[in-house]
Design a protein around this nucleic acid. Structure first.
Lengths: 204, 204, 204, 204
DNA sequence: AATGAATGAGATTTCATTCAT
DNA sequence: GATGAATGAAATCTCATTCAT
């Protein structure tokens, strides 16, 4: 009782929750500045952790990036699980996803899509295996959308192509929204996706 | 005569065409490795130009990046001009663009779309004005596609949205193709775009 | 009974014999990697002892190195005692030593002689007094060999020089065996030593 | 004339001879402190070169070490060439070598033999190929001594073993001289080598 | 006694940029 | 114009050692 206050329990049992603070700060900075332009000193500063201490939690910078990707993946999984729970109809699930995309214009206009940015940057590296890690992240979305289209009666192959189109529009719109600093762009493309979902559902 | 052969005149009158060689080498390296991970020393080496000499042609690294973006923009403009010249019907022009997209799967799977990569990376920087520069590049495509849809009878607003969808699919598919190292992905999305162009042409 | 089994008593009475495990792991790692390239974290890991706990047993890294040297010295003393017990004739004792040298080619080719490596590395340090410690280790061998030559009738001075020659050949051969990764080198030099012992015994 | 003063000519034509100063400083520090305990900052300081500038001449620390080994090898080759030139009789050449060994007691007592130290330390590393480099250095001596013994009529195999014994005594004596801080040790072992050379010459 | 966590000094390395000639 | 050399700031990473409990 005296040894483990609530704050520490929430932090996963670690004293002070520094690991979590580091991942949180890194999540934010990596998404905003990119991997290459974010130094561990910045992350440490933002997390209020001495630089040397970062290496107690993460052996290398890549390790931290990996942890950030994993944390992000967990969020994504939770989002999809929520759609599943909230909507029995796959079409509604896809529309919920599209709606969320439309609502994320503010963030997209400022920073683009975190997943897309990471994939774009990490695929340019030949070392490590971080590109695989980020690819896994992207797979989550494609697989989930494909699954919904299959549930709507599309063949595995068709559903795969439809899923790629869906995520492509999402990723492309995030990029353009960011490039043009135009938050409204996202909602207009989300509207397109919503209509398109209905078209495909009819066709499935 | 002996000092400035024709080849050099074409290269802008500069002796040896070093500026052009630098831009060419940078174009290649920046697209493959990203801006942050490409050093001027690498560019100089690839262009067979002494490092110290680079600064005679480009005051800063950003200056070189700007020149690369401009050079790429020129290529893009030339491509669109060629479509215009080759096809009187805007629908055919768009299909020609889609066809080229489909044919570029190999490059996309390896490096993504140069424009997309640059926009994604440069929009993460708050300094300089390179994000504006890369946004201009992206605008070229969107504007050209919008123009074709307007020629097909769509309103300015509708055509703008359609253009954004078109370029989004292109950019998103490039990203996914690169992420999944799947060249075929591009041609399948290009096929989708081709059908979709017909749909919009009918509707316009 | 349940808290201190025999195995632990033998280990010096300390619970778990952690001190011994640390020395054992350090002995191995220091000989293989050298002092400077071996971190306490590695030693702790290899000994399955928490890093923080190392400092309960050894105040500093140098303290641990000292303990390793002492442990090694104990082994060396035991070896010499065994030769003494097994062979009444000093000449046979020396030949037994030479034979052991010849048989150690495999280890020497991989890591050199532990004593030699330690002396070579630690004599390069001006701090601490670890060089004295490793010198003591080397003295053991020289003194024992000298003793045998004196027993064979050589003067103290002559015996000292002979002992230095003997150990020099041993150390030099260990170094060359390691440098050239040639295990057979040791046995060939051991054969030389054996003949040479006879020559000196005759001369003594 | 005004552009290339004598000092620069001597330094190999490079301005200021920084490369040479770096190698010189490194030669000294590496021999005295070992590779691991010598930082590039120390070398830079000793050579009066800004740290950042070191990397203009040597891409990595290992590169500098390599250059030092090469420089040392050059010295060794020059020494052997001098023996060859000065003495037609291989026996005299070997004795000249032994005499030099005997005369080097002061340095050996303080720092050991540079070659031996390097081989001992670098053979403990699994990375890079510096162990090969230092092995080459050691080969120089063994090969040269073998050559002399062959000229004296020994078979290739015998001469090889004799050469290894010779260099072993040299290396071992350097180590013991350093360990015991005893400069006289070297001259006494050199005397042994001189007598031993005669024995082998008679036997060859 | 035991230990997970913390810390700060220092090492190697990279690189955009500048300078002297 | 051209260029080899120089420079310093900053980044990643290591590690002996200490601390709080």
């Amino acid at each position: 009782m005296t040894d483990s206050p609530l704050a520490e329990r929430r932090a996963g049992g670690r004293r002070g929750g520094k690991r979590e603070r580091l991942i949180g700060a890194a999540l934010d900075l990596l998404h905003r500045q990119g991997v290459a332009r974010t130094s561990l000193a910045q992350v440490a500063e933002a997390a209020d952790v001495p630089l040397g201490n970062v290496y107690y939690y993460f052996k290398t910078k890549d390790d931290l990036v990996r942890a950030v990707i994993d944390a992000h993946a967990e969020r994504v999984r939770a989002t999809f699980a929520a759609y599943r729970a909230a909507h029995p109809d796959p079409r509604d699930r896809l529309k919920a996803f599209a709606a969320q995309i439309g609502a994320s214009g503010g963030y997209a206009a400022r920073h683009g899509c975190p997943m897309g940015s990471l994939c774009s940057e990490l695929d340019k590296r030949e070392d490590g295996g971080l590109d695989q890690e980020s690819a896994t992240l992207m797979t989550l979305g494609v697989d989930w959308v494909r699954e919904q289209f299959q549930l709507l009666g599309h063949s595995a192959e068709d559903a795969g192509d439809l899923a790629v189109t869906f995520i492509s529009v999402f990723q492309g719109a995030s990029l353009l929204s960011n490039t043009f600093r135009d938050p409204g762009l996202m909602s207009r493309q989300a509207a397109f996706l919503t209509r398109w979902i209905d078209d495909q559902a009819r066709a499935g």
